[in-house]
Design a protein around this nucleic acid. Structure first.
Lengths: 304, 304
DNA sequence: TAATTTCACAACGGTTGGTTGTCGCTGGCT
DNA sequence: AGCCAGCGACAACCAACCGTTGTGAAATTA
C-alpha cells in the first residue's frame, strides 16, 4: 500500500523507489503482487511513467487511509507524545460514556479510554503518578488525595433503581431513597475495600437501607434473570450507565429523587499537568456535562 | 495486527493459532515482533492464557480499525459488490462537491468519486454501459442519450464571472450576461468537441459574447496571474466550483443574473440500475441540491 | 539513428517467517 | 504434597519470500 501510494504520488516507479530507499525492480514486484492480490490493474504503465487506472484512483484514498490508521495505531502506544489516556473504571458506566461523548463532539481530540485491571483507588493514584495513565475517574474522599495529584469532581451520576416487572415499585414514576428501606437491594460484584463498597455503605447508612453488596458477580445475564423473575429484588445503577438490561428483560429504571443520590466521579490527574487534551476534557465535562439536580445526596466525605 | 486481535479476543495464543490456521509458536513470534517494533508489552502472559496490558487495551481498537480499513480498501476495488463509482468529471467542480456533501451527510453510503481520464461524453456513456463506472455527471444533450442509459438533470451550476481587481466589473454586485458583450472572456483548456465547448458556444451565441475557449491550459496559476494583472480579462466559473483562486490573488466572483446561465449536469446511469446507493444519491441531489433561480438560461438542447 | 528513460523479467542470495521439538512454569486435581 | 495438563517461550531447521544485480523491450528525445 505504501509503495502504491508512493508511485501514485510521484508518477513513476523509479522516483517511488528512491523515496522508499529500495530499487526500482523491488517497487515493480510490490505493485505486481498487490495487483495480483486484488485481481485488478492499479497503474497504467506508459513509456514515461505510470498513470493510475480507475481502480487505482479508487484505491488511492483508501490506501492513504490505511497508512494513516497504521500511523495512528503506532502513535497510540509509542511512549512520548501519545494520546491522553483516561482510566474510566469500567467501559459501561457514566465516565466511559462521558469520555466517549467528548470524543464524539471533538474528534480532533486525541484520547484513549482504558480500564486499569485493579479497581483499587490507591493503585489508580499510583498509575496516575507514574504516568501509566494521564487521568482516572474515581470516587476518592477529599482527604485521601495524595500530594502531587489534583482531583476535581466533574461528573455526578444520579442513581436509578432497576427492578423487574413484578416488583411493587415497577410502575412508580420515581421513588425516594427512604422508600427503599425494607426492600432487598442486591449489588453483586462489589469487592470490600473498594470505593464502590464505601459509597454503598454510606448510602445504606444514610437512608437505613439493606444493601446486599456481597457475593460474587455471576455476570450481567444472571443478574438480569434474577431481577426479571423476582418480585422483591432490586438493584441500583447509574443513570448514565450503558447497561442494555431494560431492553431485553422488560426491566424498569426508576429515578430516585428527594434527595437524588449521586455517585460522584472525581477526575484524578497529575498536579500541574497542562496537557491540552486534558484541559479540553475538563472543560467539556464542566460545561456540557449533565445537569445535576438541586436536591442531591452524596457521601459525606465528598467535598462541595 | 490481525494476530494480536485474534489473541486479544480469544485470550490465548493457541486458540488464536487455530483461528488463523498457524502454529502456536508462529503466533508467539508474531506478537514478539510486534511488541519489539512498538517497544511496548501488549499482552501479559499468565499460566492459563494472556491478558491485555494497558498498551494492549489502547492498541486493540486501533488494530481493529486498521483491519477494517484494509478490508474496506480491498472491497473498494474487488469486482462484484463494490462501492458505487460516480464519475465527477473533475474533482474541483460542482458535481464532485455535491457527491462529497452527499457522502458527508450519509457516511454509511458506500461510494467512490472518480474521474475518467477522457473527457469525451461518448466515452463516458460507454464506461457507464460496460460497468466501468456506475454513474457519470455530464452535460449531455437530451437527444443524444443512447439506448440503455438513463439520464436525469440533477444539478444546475450557476455561472459566475471571475475577474481581477482592476477589471471594470470588479465591484459590480452582479451583472447580466448581455453586459459581457464586448468584454474579453478567456476559458483556457477547453478541447473542441467536448461538452464544455458545446456549452460555451451556445452561451456565446445566445448573448453575443466573444468567448476565447482556445489555447492550451497553462495551469490554474497562470490563469490566476493573468486575471489579477489584466483590467480587461475575465473568465467564467461555476458557483459551486472549489477553486481557491479568489483568496490568493484578490480576484472577485461576480454572480450572473437576468437570466442566470446555468451549466446543467446530467447524471447518466444504466437504465434500470436499482443500486440502493445510486437511488439515495439521486434523492439527495433532488432534495438537498442548491436552489435554482427562477430566471435561468440553459443551452437549448437541454430538456426541461 | 543513437541515447535516454521507462518498466518488466530472470537469476541469485540473505533474511524472514513458519514448522517441529522441547522446556519451564503455573494452577487444578488427586 | 505431588502429579499432570495446558500454556507460552526458546532453539534449530527449512522453505518461501523479498530485495538485489543484470539485462531486455518499448517508447520518447535529441
Amino acid at each position: 500500500m505504501r509503495t502504491f501510494v508512493a508511485v501514485a504520488e510521484t508518477g513513476q516507479f523509479q522516483a517511488a523507489a528512491d523515496q522508499l530507499g529500495i530499487s526500482q525492480q523491488a517497487v515493480s514486484k510490490r505493485i505486481a503482487t498487490l495487483e495480483k492480490h486484488l485481481e485488478v490493474t492499479l497503474l497504467v504503465r506508459t513509456s514515461r511513467g505510470s498513470r493510475m487506472s480507475l481502480d487505482g484512483q479508487v484505491l488511492l484514498p483508501h490506501a492513504k487511509k490505511v497508512l494513516a490508521t497504521v500511523e495512528q495505531a503506532e502513535q497510540a502506544v509509542r511512549p512520548g507524545s501519545r494520546p491522553l489516556r483516561v482510566d474510566v473504571l469500567n467501559r459501561r458506566i457514566a465516565p466511559a460514556q462521558a469520555v466517549y461523548r467528548c470524543y464524539r463532539s471533538h474528534p480532533e481530540m486525541n484520547l484513549d479510554a482504558v480500564t486499569l485491571s485493579k479497581e483499587n483507588a490507591a493503585q489508580a493514584t499510583r498509575a496516575v503518578l507514574d504516568g501509566t495513565v494521564d487521568a482516572s475517574f474515581r470516587a476518592l474522599p477529599a482527604g485521601q488525595v495524595p500530594a502531587g495529584i489534583s482531583a476535581e469532581r466533574l461528573l455526578d451520576a444520579p442513581l436509578e433503581l432497576l427492578v423487574g416487572p413484578g416488583h411493587p415499585l415497577a410502575d412508580a414514576p420515581w421513588v425516594r431513597p427512604a422508600d427503599l428501606a425494607g426492600h432487598r437491594i442486591w449489588i453483586p460484584g462489589i469487592r470490600p475495600g473498594t470505593e464502590w463498597a464505601a459509597f454503598y455503605r454510606a448510602l445504606s447508612e444514610a437512608f437505613g437501607l439493606s444493601i446486599d453488596a456481597l457475593g460474587p458477580n455471576f455476570g450481567d445475564e444472571a443478574l438480569m434473570d434474577a431481577l426479571a423473575d423476582s418480585a422483591s429484588l432490586a438493584t441500583l445503577v447509574g443513570s448514565g450507565d450503558r447497561y442494555l438490561w431494560p431492553q431485553t428483560h422488560d426491566l424498569r429504571r426508576i429515578p430516585l429523587h428527594d434527595p437524588t443520590p449521586i455517585y460522584p466521579h472525581v477526575l484524578l490527574s497529575r498536579a500541574g499537568d497542562q496537557h491540552p487534551v486534558l484541559t479540553a476534557l475538563r472543560d467539556h465535562l464542566r460545561t456540557s456535562g449533565p445537569r445535576t439536580p438541586d436536591d442531591v445526596w452524596a457521601p459525606g466525605w465528598v467535598d462541595r
